[in-house]
Lab assay of single mutants.
Amino acid sequence: TFYNFIMGFQNDNTPFGILAEHVSEDKAFPRLEERHQVIRAYVMSNYTDHQLIETTNRAISLYMANL
């Protein structure tokens, strides 16, 4: 899942690491979701930090390219 992918960046001092920290603390994050459209919609609806949203979009693109 995307959640498992992004958790691989925990403790990294990178934008993906920052995203992983936010996702791990977000109890409502769709952890079992595999459809990138649902993940993107969730982030757009629940996150207000523009940098975090952009990082999510980049992470989703990388995740999709590696499926």
Rank of each mutant, 00 (worst) to 15 (best):
32 L>N: 13
43 V>Q: 00
32 L>M: 13
23 V>N: 02
29 F>Q: 01
31 R>Q: 07
26 D>V: 09
14 T>M: 03
64 M>A: 09
39 I>F: 05
47 Y>D: 01
39 I>P: 00
42 Y>V: 04
8 G>N: 11
21 E>S: 14
65 A>L: 13
10 Q>L: 15
60 I>K: 00
59 A>N: 02
32 L>K: 10
7 M>I: 08
30 P>E: 02
4 N>F: 09
32 L>C: 13
34 E>D: 13
13 N>Y: 06
40 R>P: 00
21 E>K: 15
44 M>I: 11
45 S>P: 01
44 M>Y: 12
24 S>I: 09
60 I>N: 00
27 K>E: 11
35 R>M: 06
21 E>M: 15
44 M>G: 06
44 M>K: 09
16 F>D: 00
40 R>D: 02
62 L>R: 06
28 A>E: 12
9 F>C: 04
39 I>T: 01
4 N>D: 14
63 Y>R: 02
5 F>S: 00
51 Q>S: 13
29 F>G: 03
47 Y>E: 01
32 L>W: 13
50 H>C: 11
17 G>D: 02
7 M>G: 01
14 T>Q: 03
26 D>M: 04
31 R>L: 05
27 K>Q: 11
23 V>L: 11
37 Q>D: 14
5 F>K: 00
37 Q>I: 08
20 A>C: 03
63 Y>E: 00
32 L>T: 13
34 E>S: 15
30 P>Q: 02
30 P>Y: 10
58 R>P: 03
39 I>Q: 00
25 E>F: 11
2 F>M: 02
26 D>S: 04
59 A>T: 03
53 I>M: 07
57 N>G: 07
35 R>N: 15
52 L>E: 01
15 P>V: 11
36 H>T: 15
55 T>D: 04
21 E>Q: 15
59 A>S: 04
41 A>I: 09
51 Q>L: 14
40 R>V: 12
54 E>N: 07
52 L>I: 10
19 L>F: 04
7 M>P: 00
33 E>S: 06
67 L>E: 09
49 D>W: 05
66 N>C: 13
9 F>S: 01
37 Q>G: 09
24 S>Q: 12
49 D>L: 05
29 F>W: 05
40 R>T: 08
41 A>W: 09
62 L>C: 11
3 Y>G: 00
6 I>F: 03
14 T>I: 03
23 V>I: 15
21 E>H: 15
39 I>D: 00
21 E>T: 14
55 T>W: 09
2 F>P: 00
56 T>H: 03
21 E>C: 12
25 E>A: 15
41 A>R: 09
55 T>H: 04
60 I>M: 07
9 F>I: 03
54 E>K: 08
43 V>A: 06
40 R>M: 15
3 Y>R: 01
58 R>I: 11
64 M>K: 09
40 R>H: 10
56 T>V: 14
55 T>Q: 05
4 N>K: 11
50 H>G: 10
8 G>L: 12
28 A>I: 06
15 P>M: 10
34 E>G: 14
45 S>Y: 08
48 T>W: 08
59 A>R: 03
29 F>I: 05
25 E>T: 14
59 A>F: 04
3 Y>T: 01
21 E>W: 14
